[in-house]
Protein backbone atom coordinates (compact mmCIF):
# COMPACT_ATOMS: atom_id res chain seq x y z
CA UNK A 1 0.00 0.00 0.00
CA UNK A 2 1.35 3.43 -0.91
CA UNK A 3 1.90 6.03 1.81
CA UNK A 4 -1.12 8.26 2.54
CA UNK A 5 -1.05 11.78 1.18
CA UNK A 6 -2.84 14.94 2.29
CA UNK A 7 -5.11 16.74 -0.21
CA UNK A 8 -3.01 17.80 -3.19
CA UNK A 9 -4.64 21.22 -3.40
CA UNK A 10 -3.75 21.91 0.24
CA UNK A 11 -0.13 20.94 -0.37
CA UNK A 12 -0.04 23.18 -3.45
CA UNK A 13 -1.54 26.03 -1.42
CA UNK A 14 1.06 25.56 1.32
CA UNK A 15 3.90 25.78 -1.19
CA UNK A 16 2.51 29.09 -2.47
CA UNK A 17 2.73 30.52 1.03
CA UNK A 18 6.31 29.58 1.80
CA UNK A 19 9.62 31.22 0.95
CA UNK A 20 11.73 29.13 -1.47
CA UNK A 21 14.15 28.13 1.33
CA UNK A 22 11.30 26.69 3.42
CA UNK A 23 9.19 25.15 0.65
CA UNK A 24 10.67 21.66 0.87
CA UNK A 25 11.55 21.57 4.57
CA UNK A 26 8.25 22.88 6.01
CA UNK A 27 6.04 20.88 3.64
CA UNK A 28 8.22 17.85 4.52
CA UNK A 29 7.67 18.46 8.26
CA UNK A 30 3.90 18.59 7.80
CA UNK A 31 3.89 15.52 5.54
CA UNK A 32 5.97 13.57 8.07
CA UNK A 33 3.62 14.48 10.91
CA UNK A 34 0.59 13.64 8.74
CA UNK A 35 1.92 10.23 7.73
CA UNK A 36 3.58 9.13 10.98
CA UNK A 37 1.25 10.55 13.59
CA UNK A 38 -2.03 12.11 12.51
CA UNK A 39 -3.18 9.65 9.83
CA UNK A 40 -2.50 6.42 11.82
CA UNK A 41 -4.13 7.91 14.95
CA UNK A 42 -7.16 9.64 13.44
CA UNK A 43 -7.82 8.19 9.96
CA UNK A 44 -8.22 9.82 6.54
CA UNK A 45 -10.94 12.45 7.11
CA UNK A 46 -9.71 13.94 10.40
CA UNK A 47 -6.10 13.77 9.18
CA UNK A 48 -7.01 15.72 6.03
CA UNK A 49 -8.90 18.24 8.15
CA UNK A 50 -5.84 18.59 10.41
CA UNK A 51 -3.62 19.22 7.39
CA UNK A 52 -6.03 21.79 5.94
CA UNK A 53 -6.23 23.57 9.32
CA UNK A 54 -2.42 23.79 9.43
CA UNK A 55 -2.38 25.29 5.93
CA UNK A 56 -5.17 27.70 6.96
CA UNK A 57 -2.90 28.81 9.82
CA UNK A 58 -0.18 29.69 7.29
CA UNK A 59 -2.77 31.59 5.18
CA UNK A 60 -3.91 33.54 8.23
CA UNK A 61 -0.37 34.31 9.36
CA UNK A 62 0.61 35.50 5.88
CA UNK A 63 -2.36 37.83 5.31
CA UNK A 64 -3.73 39.02 8.66
CA UNK A 65 -2.03 42.39 8.56
CA UNK A 66 -3.46 43.44 5.17
CA UNK A 67 -6.84 41.95 6.06
CA UNK A 68 -6.89 43.92 9.32
CA UNK A 69 -5.98 47.15 7.52
CA UNK A 70 -8.55 46.56 4.75
CA UNK A 71 -11.36 45.70 7.15
CA UNK A 72 -10.30 48.54 9.48
CA UNK A 73 -10.63 51.08 6.65
CA UNK A 74 -13.99 49.60 5.63
CA UNK A 75 -15.39 49.66 9.16
CA UNK A 76 -14.11 53.21 9.72
CA UNK A 77 -15.72 54.36 6.47
CA UNK A 78 -19.01 52.67 7.45
CA UNK A 79 -18.93 54.22 10.93
CA UNK A 80 -18.32 57.69 9.46
CA UNK A 81 -21.11 57.26 6.90
CA UNK A 82 -23.56 56.10 9.56
CA UNK A 83 -22.68 58.38 12.45
CA UNK A 84 -21.25 61.47 10.72
CA UNK A 85 -23.04 61.44 7.34
CA UNK A 86 -21.59 63.84 4.77
CA UNK A 87 -23.53 65.82 2.14
CA UNK A 88 -21.46 64.25 -0.62
CA UNK A 89 -19.99 60.72 -0.33
CA UNK A 90 -17.57 61.21 -3.23
CA UNK A 91 -14.41 62.10 -1.30
CA UNK A 92 -14.89 59.34 1.29
CA UNK A 93 -15.72 56.89 -1.45
CA UNK A 94 -12.56 57.73 -3.40
CA UNK A 95 -10.40 57.58 -0.26
CA UNK A 96 -11.70 54.17 0.84
CA UNK A 97 -11.50 52.76 -2.71
CA UNK A 98 -7.88 53.82 -3.17
CA UNK A 99 -6.98 52.56 0.30
CA UNK A 100 -8.48 49.17 -0.54
CA UNK A 101 -6.57 49.09 -3.84
CA UNK A 102 -3.33 49.97 -2.04
CA UNK A 103 -3.80 47.29 0.65
CA UNK A 104 -4.60 44.57 -1.90
CA UNK A 105 -1.64 45.52 -4.10
CA UNK A 106 0.61 45.44 -1.02
CA UNK A 107 -0.78 42.05 0.04
CA UNK A 108 0.00 40.62 -3.40
CA UNK A 109 3.40 42.28 -3.53
CA UNK A 110 4.49 40.97 -0.11
CA UNK A 111 3.27 37.42 -0.78
CA UNK A 112 5.01 37.24 -4.16
CA UNK A 113 8.14 38.87 -2.75
CA UNK A 114 8.26 36.21 0.00
CA UNK A 115 7.58 33.21 -2.21
CA UNK A 116 8.97 34.38 -5.53
CA UNK A 117 5.77 33.08 -7.16
CA UNK A 118 3.24 35.14 -9.09
CA UNK A 119 0.33 32.90 -8.03
CA UNK A 120 1.08 33.76 -4.39
CA UNK A 121 0.03 37.33 -5.11
CA UNK A 122 -3.34 36.24 -6.46
CA UNK A 123 -3.84 33.91 -3.49
CA UNK A 124 -2.95 36.73 -1.08
CA UNK A 125 -5.49 38.98 -2.80
CA UNK A 126 -8.28 36.42 -2.36
CA UNK A 127 -7.27 35.47 1.20
CA UNK A 128 -6.95 39.10 2.29
CA UNK A 129 -10.37 39.95 0.84
CA UNK A 130 -12.10 36.96 2.44
CA UNK A 131 -10.51 37.55 5.84
CA UNK A 132 -11.34 41.25 5.63
CA UNK A 133 -14.93 40.41 4.63
CA UNK A 134 -15.32 38.23 7.73
CA UNK A 135 -13.87 40.91 10.04
CA UNK A 136 -15.90 43.68 8.34
CA UNK A 137 -19.15 41.75 8.67
CA UNK A 138 -18.57 41.27 12.39
CA UNK A 139 -17.40 44.86 12.83
CA UNK A 140 -20.29 46.49 10.99
CA UNK A 141 -22.71 44.10 12.72
CA UNK A 142 -21.35 45.38 16.06
CA UNK A 143 -21.72 49.00 14.90
CA UNK A 144 -25.36 48.34 14.01
CA UNK A 145 -26.00 46.56 17.31
CA UNK A 146 -24.47 49.46 19.28
CA UNK A 147 -26.41 52.21 17.51
CA UNK A 148 -29.57 51.84 15.43
CA UNK A 149 -31.67 54.89 16.31
CA UNK A 150 -33.87 56.62 13.72
CA UNK A 151 -31.15 59.09 12.64
CA UNK A 152 -28.64 56.27 12.13
CA UNK A 153 -31.17 54.19 10.16
CA UNK A 154 -31.78 57.18 7.87
CA UNK A 155 -28.02 57.65 7.42
CA UNK A 156 -27.66 53.93 6.59
CA UNK A 157 -30.36 54.18 3.92
CA UNK A 158 -28.79 57.31 2.41
CA UNK A 159 -25.33 55.72 2.30
CA UNK A 160 -26.50 52.68 0.31
CA UNK A 161 -28.36 50.55 2.83
CA UNK A 162 -27.44 47.60 5.03
CA UNK A 163 -27.36 45.14 2.12
CA UNK A 164 -24.52 47.05 0.47
CA UNK A 165 -22.51 47.19 3.69
CA UNK A 166 -22.67 43.41 4.16
CA UNK A 167 -22.32 42.40 0.49
CA UNK A 168 -19.57 44.82 -0.60
CA UNK A 169 -16.69 43.05 1.20
CA UNK A 170 -17.62 39.74 -0.49
CA UNK A 171 -17.97 41.45 -3.88
CA UNK A 172 -14.33 42.52 -3.56
CA UNK A 173 -13.07 38.94 -4.03
CA UNK A 174 -12.64 39.17 -7.82
CA UNK A 175 -11.04 42.65 -7.75
CA UNK A 176 -8.97 41.33 -4.83
CA UNK A 177 -7.70 38.48 -6.98
CA UNK A 178 -6.83 40.85 -9.83
CA UNK A 179 -5.12 43.41 -7.59
CA UNK A 180 -3.27 40.71 -5.66
CA UNK A 181 -2.03 39.28 -8.96
CA UNK A 182 -0.95 42.75 -10.10
CA UNK A 183 0.92 43.31 -6.83
CA UNK A 184 2.34 39.82 -7.29
CA UNK A 185 3.76 40.69 -10.71
CA UNK A 186 5.53 43.71 -9.20
CA UNK A 187 6.73 41.59 -6.26
CA UNK A 188 8.18 38.84 -8.47
CA UNK A 189 9.84 41.33 -10.83
CA UNK A 190 11.29 43.30 -7.89
CA UNK A 191 12.59 40.12 -6.26
CA UNK A 192 14.20 38.91 -9.47
CA UNK A 193 15.72 42.32 -10.20
CA UNK A 194 17.24 42.57 -6.74
CA UNK A 195 18.54 38.99 -6.69
CA UNK A 196 20.11 39.42 -10.16
CA UNK A 197 21.58 42.79 -9.09
Amino acid sequence: MSAPNPPRWAEALLRLLLAPRDRQTVSGDLLEEYRENIYPERGRGPADRWYISQVAGFVLRGNWLWAALLSGSFITRTALDWFVPPKDFYIRSMASTWLAIAFLLCAGFCAAWRSGLLRSGALAGIATTLLAAAISTIGTGCLFAIRHDAATLTAIQESGGLAEVFSLPIMLVIPGLALGALGGIVGVVARRSISSY
Binding site: T25, G28, E32
Partner: peptide, 15 residues
Protein backbone atom coordinates in the same frame (compact mmCIF):
# COMPACT_ATOMS: atom_id res chain seq x y z
CA UNK B 1 21.55 23.75 8.20
CA UNK B 2 19.87 21.34 5.82
CA UNK B 3 19.83 17.61 6.47
CA UNK B 4 18.82 14.74 4.21
CA UNK B 5 15.19 13.78 3.63
CA UNK B 6 13.58 10.45 4.42
CA UNK B 7 11.05 8.28 2.60
CA UNK B 8 8.19 9.31 4.90
CA UNK B 9 8.88 12.94 3.96
CA UNK B 10 8.89 12.05 0.25
CA UNK B 11 12.61 12.79 0.24
CA UNK B 12 12.15 16.40 1.30
CA UNK B 13 15.08 17.73 3.38
CA UNK B 14 14.96 18.68 7.06
CA UNK B 15 16.17 22.00 8.40
Amino acid sequence: RLGPGTEVRAGRPRR
